[in-house]
Design a protein around this nucleic acid. Structure first.
Lengths: 206, 206, 206, 206
DNA sequence: CATGAATGAGGCTTCATTCAT
DNA sequence: GATGAATGAAGCCTCATTCAT
């Protein structure tokens, strides 16, 4: 009997191979055969580890979410200083990860698409809702900290800003995906300057 | 001989039928047969008007972009008042269109997905780049106006803020898609308050 | 739109082609592709008329049952004379159909097998139960007639004899299937002589 | 070195496990893996004892035939009394074995099916021909005995009656298989009464 | 000897597209 | 022009069999 860890290793190998192929071909155009080749295994072996193409796809999705969250956690745990600084640093960190993500970003779009129309849409939607919720939570906490320390204005609508900010980062990467000349880091910097100013400065009039 | 307009009408009919089906099934799961039924015509007739499923899909995309732009144009041309007011009004207008768009939003995701991996990806990417660019332009102009009228701070990075803002709106709708309880209008309001404050208020230092 | 009768004709064409192939290869070894070739149509066309291989197989079964019943009906309606004569004539008629059936008899075995273990077993079992029941009914009626006319002994267990007789004919054909030298007509004659004697003669003692 | 009997034991174990699975799933739907589980051994081990799935199936067939013959032999050797009584007792014995056979009867149908269309059809057909022949022989002998002792009428066509009788028993079990409410023992009794009467009574006219 | 992970040939089924009517 | 019956390329998945451990 193969050791459990060995089985897990192979599973991981397949997931990463599948991620690559799904990223470059999209779900529909991806052939199980191509994933097998990418993973250096036989076609049938895929089915020893996953029930179906869709099962494999969803597993790649979960793996991707986990990996992204892990990356974000690292960024956040490394943060220090004022709330403004930490917000700025988080933004920079996320935008900097763009270079690494670029090849994989099309995966995100496949996931979105799957959440919209695949047979597994409910699973995907749920996972996305959860993921966005978690991320909003992190940003909310940062902003609330800033308010409690008197750094940000107290009347700020924390939840709305957090939701929008999370979305902004997402969308900047999306624009970078569409436009090679678009630099998400620069855009985020210019934007965060204004936003942090908006969080910090006393409103002229209410 | 059928008049040109008659032919155009039928074409439009097919496009709208196709949009509905693509929206509910996604590109891959949509059957040409189902589009024909939705349009109330024969399967073969589709091919009198479109070369292929992909051709039809891209045509739906162009139709969708045009319709969305038209809606945005209406919103903008109706704007008046200070730059802040106009920015706020644009935001509200976009978020309000959510109710109408909801059923069609999955189409947007299908388009993203197509831009990532379909055989027509270049066409899609180009159109998206263009679309985002056009929209950024509109917002840029609004902000520049605000600066020139002394309403917004002169050191604001116009392009970056415009790009981010466009993305934020997009992403708020995306979150609303994933989460029925998420109200994009509310979130946009809370966020725009802070952002406009950031555009307006003099930075403390720097 | 193709006329209904034309559609029915093609359906019948496919059923007969499928019957041939199922008969020579068995269900499991039959390829849909081979049926298509036998029918002189494209593989995909099969699925315009039948949902699946199993659906087609069951349809062949129903067709076969109907055809067999029709043949039996003809035999019976042509009968006249004493009950003994009619019973004998029915037996001869059934055994004589052997020559025609020979090529198709393996189909019967496939049907039995399907009733035992295929996913459609319930459907098959039910149809067989029904078929045997109908046939028993016919034979019962013949025997009852004989008794009522004082030709057969009154204490005869009608149902049991009918059931057994139906089975005997079936089994003689089965033995003919296994053994080319076995002549079911001859065997049936020798047997029917004894049986009719048993129905007719007064039992020596109880 | 494992003793020969040890190897034989395991072989027998596998055969019985396979018989169970073939009986409930049929040949085509049976997975070698399931047989291995039923036998409590590894999948690969099956191939230490049998060359292929078909080889195993045929071996099960041979085992089944041998077991059935053994049972019949026991029944017959226990017989005594008049030819009529012995015939009746044989019939009862066979029908009584129905209760034990019920679970395995689907195997018989699988064997029939295999004789019709499997790649091993010749082997199966031959074995069936042989089996039916052997059984006919036994019944022939009984009837001939009856004639020689003046119990049965001399003009009886021994071979035909024997063949038909063997078939009748077979077919009664078949009907019982299709119809849970059908009692083969009862039917056989009613039928044998008539048949024995037919064998015994002087024909009215020739 | 025993095992079960790995394999890939093979088949059912789907569905965009064609074309005769 | 309009239709839908016919098509066959293409792909997911199954599972008997192999072979390294």
């Amino acid at each position: 009997m193969i050791s459990l860890s060995r089985k897990q290793e192979k599973r991981a190998l397949i997931i990463e191979a599948a991620a690559k192929v799904f990223a470059r071909r999209g779900f529909a155009s991806t052939l199980m055969a191509e994933i097998a080749i990418e993973a250096g295994i036989g076609k049938g072996t895929l089915y020893e580890y996953f029930d179906s193409k869709e099962d494999l796809f969803f597993t790649v999705f979960e793996w991707f979410v986990k990996a992204t969250e892990a990356k974000a956690q690292v960024s956040i745990s490394a943060l220090g200083g004022s709330a403004s600084d930490r917000l700025q640093a988080l933004s920079d960190s996320l935008m900097n990860s763009w270079a690494d993500m670029k090849d994989m970003y099309s995966l995100v779009m496949e996931f979105w698409s799957a959440s919209a129309s695949s047979q597994m849409r409910q699973q995907f939607k749920k996972a996305f809702r959860q993921g966005y919720g978690d991320f909003r939570q992190i940003v909310s906490t940062l902003i609330r900290d800033g308010i409690e320390h008197g750094e940000f204005q107290p009347q700020v609508d924390i939840e709305s800003v957090a939701a929008a900010l999370v979305g902004t980062w997402d969308a900047l990467l999306l624009q970078a995906w569409f436009d090679d000349d678009f630099n998400p880091l620069t855009a985020a910097r210019g934007f965060m300057t204004v936003l942090i100013n908006g969080l910090t400065a006393k409103p002229r009039k209410l």
